[in-house]
């Protein structure tokens, strides 16, 4: 049976107002709501659609993080993924560590395709997919907005959004594809799906058991919240507006 590997990351809910920790080097995550990184959710959805189009396969989702990340894996299982692996890692994980761990996992089984988000909405590095492909020596197609799999699993055709238009690539499999926002609209986990997900396998692997250097290459020096937007002013007339645009904003 063909296998698709879908790495997903646990990130803070985009609706949460994050606060910077007193150290200035991290955000306070106690008690916040976590979600599946939206780009990764698109990756899960795309894998499901490939499967639903008749490409028989097993969809394996993997996440790296603390024990709580199993919640995001359950979400993916409830959407329809077949099995999950949690690589338990309590220390900080940057793109470098993530790609090393994923490469190790990839080599422990036979995968025909890796689909993952182009970036996470928390650290926004946009490089794990690229690093992984390079490390494994696989072709890569990033920022996919359309994906077509050849029925014999020999190649995948990927349409990418590039400046000024679309570019279509054919990459031979196995390959790494990263997803862009417009690839699809992910489904919600259905209630029966959530109930069924309970019975699907979720294997836990200790990151330290993979023989990978878990030292991050990136150190966060300082985090700042965006400057608070200043309140606007109410103007009495169009004349006043034009004056201000000309004399103060100097845009006219």
């Amino acid at each position: 049976m063909k296998k698709i590997l879908v790495p997903i990351k646990r990130v803070p809910d985009y609706e949460v107002k994050l606060k910077v920790a007193p150290s200035g080097e991290s955000v306070i995550t106690d008690g916040i709501k976590w979600i599946v990184n939206p780009f990764d959710e698109i990756a899960v959805e795309e894998a499901l659609r490939l499967k639903e189009r008749g490409n028989e396969c097993e969809i394996v989702v993997v996440s790296i993080g603390p024990e709580g990340a199993s919640e995001q894996l359950r979400t993916a299982l409830a959407m329809g993924a077949d099995s999950a692996i949690l690589v338990k890692c309590e220390s900080a994980v940057d793109s470098h560590v993530a790609h090393e761990i994923l490469a190790q996992l990839y080599s422990q089984d036979t995968y025909s395709l890796v689909i993952m988000g182009k970036q996470s909405i928390d650290s926004d590095a946009n490089q794990t997919g690229q690093l992984l492909a390079a490390k494994l020596g696989l072709p890569q197609a990033t920022f996919a907005s359309k994906l077509e799999l050849k029925s014999d699993w020999s190649e995948v055709q990927v349409t990418r959004e590039v400046d000024g238009g679309l570019e279509t690539l054919s990459v031979s499999l196995p390959a790494v594809v990263t997803t862009d926002l417009r690839l699809n609209e992910p489904r919600y986990p259905s209630l029966p799906g959530i109930v069924k997900a309970k019975k699907k396998p979720l294997n836990i692997v200790e990151a330290s058991s993979l023989g990978v250097d878990l030292t991050p290459r990136i150190k966060i020096r300082k985090l700042e919240t965006p400057a608070v937007r200043k309140a606007g002013v109410k103007l009495g007339s169009v004349v006043e507006l034009v004056d201000k645009l000309r004399d103060e904003a100097k845009v006219l």
């Binding site: 919640e71 979400t75 409830a78 919600y188 986990p189 259905s190 959530i194 997900a197």
Partner: peptide, 12 residues
């Protein structure tokens, strides 16, 4: 975990 998932799916 499942209850949280039910809740978040219904909320979405």
């Amino acid at each position: 975990e499942d209850q949280k998932l039910l809740q978040s799916s219904a909320h979405r």
